[in-house]
Amino acid sequence: MTEKSKAKRKQPARKVKAGAQPQERTVTIPFPDTDSEDEANRILARDVPGWEKLDKDERAELLRLIRDHRKRGAPAKVKMTRKPDGGWSIEPTGKSEMLALLKLHETFSANSIDPVNARANELLKYLGSVGADNEGRYNAALSFIESMKPQDQAEALLLVQMYCTHDAAIRALSQLGSAEWIPTAQTLGNLATKLLGTSQRQMETLARMRRGGEQVVKHIHVDNRGGQAVIAENVNQGGGTAKNEDQCHGAGITGSGPAMLGHDAQGHGVPIPSRERAEAVPYARRDEPRRA
């Protein structure tokens, strides 16, 4: 007698609709509004899943991170809606439209809506050109700009450029790894190198703008005999490049120069003249006849 095994019916695989966004996992972070460690731990023990599995150090670190996260505040966020005729509609999102709009003004250091719209469209055009025009990437760009806290609209404009330049450099590097032909790899490598150099210069420009054109020039005089270095620090206003020929005490290109006249490496100092009359120096030649 043979047993007939029933074949299991295979369940058809679920088809994912094209363009459907994956479900996001939401994590709610509690914010204990108290300075008491015991009270804060009691609130976290109630609201944090898996709190009982953490040891003492992990609980203290979690509490510190939560407080630091609260001090930073929530960045500006927008909601993107596809228009029927093409393009995107960008609107502030959150419980309060006024609060969200003011956050956008602060992100771009703007006092009106016009520069906010200008910078927002610049970001949208770039992300759309590389196929990354979605809420996640757009809000990531806003978070970067907000974290740098631009002090004026010039810095906000530069920060938009910095984000786009960095993203373009990373894209060139990622395509470089999958390049099959040497000319293609060389082209992508040169492009990535130029973009990374531009990104570095943009960071230097931002730092120079925040310094206000103040430049610190250090002149180092090295005495090779004594083995000591004297550092003189000068502050030049204007942010230009100081030239050695314009500085009377410049150390030269190599950073070392001749020792000062009268310097004694043994530390005896320069002799001081006295009032006594100096002895006559004997005449070097003698009156003796020379030998042939």
Rank of each mutant, 00 (worst) to 15 (best):
G255C: 08
A40V: 00
A141G: 10
L101W: 01
M80H: 03
L123F: 02
A20C: 03
S174V: 02
R42C: 05
I90Y: 05
L157Y: 13
A118L: 06
N234A: 09
R59P: 02
A156C: 07
R211N: 06
G269T: 05
E91V: 14
P183K: 02
V16S: 10
R275E: 09
A7Q: 13
D85E: 14
A140R: 14
N121Q: 02
R42H: 08
G252F: 13
E106R: 11
L104I: 07
M203A: 11
V216S: 07
G94V: 11
K194D: 04
A292N: 15
V78R: 03
Y126N: 01
D35N: 11
S199D: 07
P12S: 10
R14C: 02
D55K: 04
R275D: 02
D152Q: 02
E288T: 11
V235P: 00
D223C: 15
R46Q: 10
D57N: 09
Q11I: 09
Q161P: 06
L102K: 10
V160E: 00
A242N: 09
A76I: 00
E37V: 11
I220L: 08
L127I: 10
L44V: 10
P289Y: 09
E288L: 11
M209N: 05
Q151E: 15
R82S: 08
E3R: 13
G131C: 02
L196Q: 12
G73P: 04
G227N: 05
V281T: 12
K4H: 14
M1T: 13
T205C: 05
G19Q: 07
D223E: 09
G87I: 01
A100N: 00
N134A: 11
V222W: 10
A74S: 11
F31K: 12
E122Y: 02
R201F: 01
F144N: 06
A110W: 04
G250Q: 13
G262K: 00
I90C: 06
K79L: 15
T187N: 09
T93H: 12
G269N: 03
D85P: 06
Q161W: 12
I29T: 12
E58W: 04
R67H: 13
G19F: 13
E122G: 04
A20I: 07
K71I: 11
V27P: 02
N139Q: 00
G226K: 09
T28N: 09
P183L: 02
M80D: 01
L63W: 03
S199A: 09
E146F: 03
E288V: 11
L188T: 03
D85L: 10
D33H: 12
K83W: 07
V217H: 14
N117G: 01
R290W: 13
P22Y: 10
N111Q: 14
D85G: 12
K4M: 14
R119I: 04
V222G: 04
L261C: 14
V160L: 01
R64H: 05
M148G: 00
A20R: 08
L142R: 04
W181N: 08
E146Y: 08
Q23N: 13
A265G: 10
Q200C: 03
T165V: 15
E146H: 13
Q186W: 03
H221F: 12
S143K: 13
S256Y: 05
F144D: 15
A265E: 13
F108A: 06
M209Q: 08
G19D: 05
A13S: 14
